[in-house]
Design a binder for these strands. Sequence first.
DNA 1: AGTCGACTTTGTCATGCGACAAAGTTGCGC
DNA 2: GCGCAACTTTGTCGCATGACAAAGTCGACT
Lengths: 207, 207
Amino acid sequence: MAHVPAAERRPQLIQAAIDLMAREGIAAGSTRAIAAELGVAQATVHYTFGTKKDLYRAVVEQLTAEFIGQVRASAPAEGPFGEQVRTMVHALWDSAVGEDGKCALITEFSAMALRDPDLQETMRALQHEIEDTAAALLTGLAAAHGLTLPVPAGEVAVYFLAGFNGLSDRYLVLKAAGEDPEPESRRALDLLVATTVGLCLGAPARS
Amino acid sequence: MAHVPAAERRPQLIQAAIDLMAREGIAAGSTRAIAAELGVAQATVHYTFGTKKDLYRAVVEQLTAEFIGQVRASAPAEGPFGEQVRTMVHALWDSAVGEDGKCALITEFSAMALRDPDLQETMRALQHEIEDTAAALLTGLAAAHGLTLPVPAGEVAVYFLAGFNGLSDRYLVLKAAGEDPEPESRRALDLLVATTVGLCLGAPARS
DNA sequence: AGTCGACTTTGTCATGCGACAAAGTTGCGC
DNA sequence: GCGCAACTTTGTCGCATGACAAAGTCGACT
């Protein structure tokens, strides 16, 4: 293997780790397998990152950045407020299920963080970053339409993202089991969009 | 260790596995650790279940049964439709976050199933069992109030459960990271209840 | 009372893991 | 063209795991 400065090795290893783990799962992400994926010696991983946990942290951060990027990229569109939201959400959904390996990987890291203190802070930051991004996007969109949100944008974001995550987790589990949960998921997603828009437009739900 | 028929050993081992893993995570659930939790030899696990996967399957089935039981147990209450739903949902939430170890364990199994074909069928069954139970509950409740649901109960169930799971996952992650996500979660949960009830009462969300 | 099958224990195997030490190799800066 | 620091490789350690074989022990049934 040619000599490559560590500053280049780092992203290479992170990418190799993501490729491998998105394909075969977090459990397949041993330092040996990751090194093999890139074609370097196992010890290179330890030289570059010190500890496996540090690699994992870097991987999660990279995945976060990509996800946030995709949320932002789904932004534009024109038309009425509701239509715009709907378009964005479906774009986000498409990109999520289109890269379901990465999606599954995030879920796996999330589960791992429930027990591993070394990942918890990273996952916490990821969660808030995503929610803040969504809230900001929503606030901007509302402002562009001259709307005043009757519910704090942050609360709507938490509500929406929880639903979105729940739906995508459900999609992944059922798809892994050989079902095609797409039509059903799409309908539930539309319900989620409809209720979210309803919250923004101030249709107060009765009790 | 006294001799105990396998039919008794089985549930004992399952319970020991649940206790241990709810406390320390799925990764701590080695056959050795589980056997030690119950105070038997490691080989007993293999004698009773054959394979570790078979134990895991049995554990998931037990957890499913308990969860379904809790959903049903949260059923009663009186009063107006919306109030009744709200009470049930909050009862379910309380029992979920009250046993957050088990909750986390289910999440971990869910993530594991994304990669392990041996668990996928079991998780698929769990998912549908829960959704069917929720849909049936909802249908019954609506009927008791003379309501005709403007949306199929099954779709509302999928929508609601996805949101609920998303919120509880978020709760678990943030709590593990040292935050107290309770007030925020409770508010988002109320949004979820409100929109769900809205769907049932036929407040059509605008777009 | 004794037998035989059900259950338990002890011991061991092969595998895969993270981590590290030490030696080798490369190529940049002088 | 050389020296040195950055990087890579080889090799190995200790540990934990799932699985199994073989021998031992119990107790219900006859």
